[in-house]
Design a protein around this nucleic acid. Structure first.
Lengths: 218, 218
DNA sequence: TAGATTGTTAATCGATTAACAATC
DNA sequence: TAGATTGTTAATCGATTAACAATC
């Protein structure tokens, strides 16, 4: 096995958050097993595809029973690396930044939000969900003294590239980008663009299709 | 041409928000044309794929010049239905809901945020970005009297299905779902699940892969 | 004109599905 | 045991790429 041996295809990575969502929810049920067919009903993926996806990581199922819900959820957590502790910081304490400070999604995924930065003097010092907003001037110092894994970027578009450059120089290796501007980063930096308005776009396209098709009835 | 003649493949719909993002940004430049090769550099899609995607909608390019940036952006806007006016309401005025009340993404996509609802008496009456938070009891009445196209759902998971049922009964045809719980809706309802923590998941998976590969060097 | 770049076809590649032996 | 469901292979389907004639 060489260095690049473990390389999950992007297409499977894209489905992992969906599996995670439904398996997390199934924990609350009193069922012990779930079949690929039942997962297909929930996720919209075919049962065949689900079995194939899961078999990529190992053999988790039990013939004639399905998948042990608890075990599979744990496996998915391991596959996604949620069992490793990661530190995240938040740059930009505007409306979206503040909402992300209250995000309940970190802990269950192994993330800890350790700092929030902003340049606005009116925000600096304010405490959001028990975390004090720090002056952006201290960004490099904080990164140097704390092992930060991910920086979430919720600054205005105009400031985005400058802050990104500072983050990269300071040694950040992964950026969760909420700005809607193109960012340039070196090849070895993980950049995940969270298009916050993506759903708005897709709904508009689909409503438009329905409108066009409806008006086409002769 | 029959009723279902205009049906953009999902795989193309998924790339439209990306084209939109980069073309919006290119408006600010003083360039008149952009080639498929330049768009490939920006988006990460191949130039061949970009030409093929665009040719699905028509012939927008000019041989030896590329695509007129302004015209192409306008076309993308039309394809995505942003030239039609749509009304959106927000259910749940918690941290995320309030952040979405300040979202600058509506107008440019042809959306108008027309109401915010919550059940919390401490929030009802509060004005967020010039919109007063209404009592959730008035939800059905509002939908009946206003032509609402989309409902954005930012309520706690426990309330999500109940509110969804009320929205569907009231006649809403499209839901932009920010809750992380599975929702059941009739087949004719457009449901777009905006997985707010998707980026967090993908970064974790990828950092985990790097960790595993690094530790595999013998 | 020569160079550049589109739009489109055919070839390739990869992802999904169908099917079924294995087995609980 | 009979029925159910996995894991996996081979077949199919669809998406991407390579290539190039057309043409600005």
């Amino acid at each position: 096995m060489g260095k690049d041996s473990y390389n999950i295809p992007d297409i499977i990575i894209g489905r992992l958050p969906v599996y995670y969502k439904y398996l997390k929810n199934l924990q609350k049920s009193n069922k012990k097993y779930v079949s690929s067919e039942e997962l297909a009903q929930l996720t919209g993926f075919s049962s065949s595809l689900i079995r194939k996806d899961l078999s990529y990581f190992g053999t988790f199922g039990k013939k004639s029973y399905g998948y042990d819900i608890f075990c599979l959820f744990q496996q998915i957590n391991i596959i996604m690396g949620f069992n490793y502790q990661k530190k995240i910081i938040l740059i930009g304490a505007g409306h979206l930044g503040q909402a992300l400070a209250y995000n309940k999604g970190y802990f269950e995924r192994g993330y800890e939000l350790t700092a929030i930065f902003d340049k606005n003097p009116n925000l600096i010092g304010l405490v959001i969900n028990d975390i004090e907003i720090k002056n952006i001037n201290f960004l490099e110092e904080f990164i140097k003294n704390n092992e930060v894994d991910v920086a979430a970027l919720t600054v205005p578009g105009a400031a985005a590239q400058k802050i990104t450059d500072r983050l990269v120089t300071a040694g950040i290796k992964a950026i969760w980008d909420f700005t809607e501007v193109p960012l340039k980063v070196p090849d070895d930096i993980l950049l995940e663009e969270q298009l916050i308005n993506e759903g708005l776009c897709k709904l508009s396209v689909k409503m438009n299709q329905i409108r066009i098709n409806d008006s086409e009835i002769e």
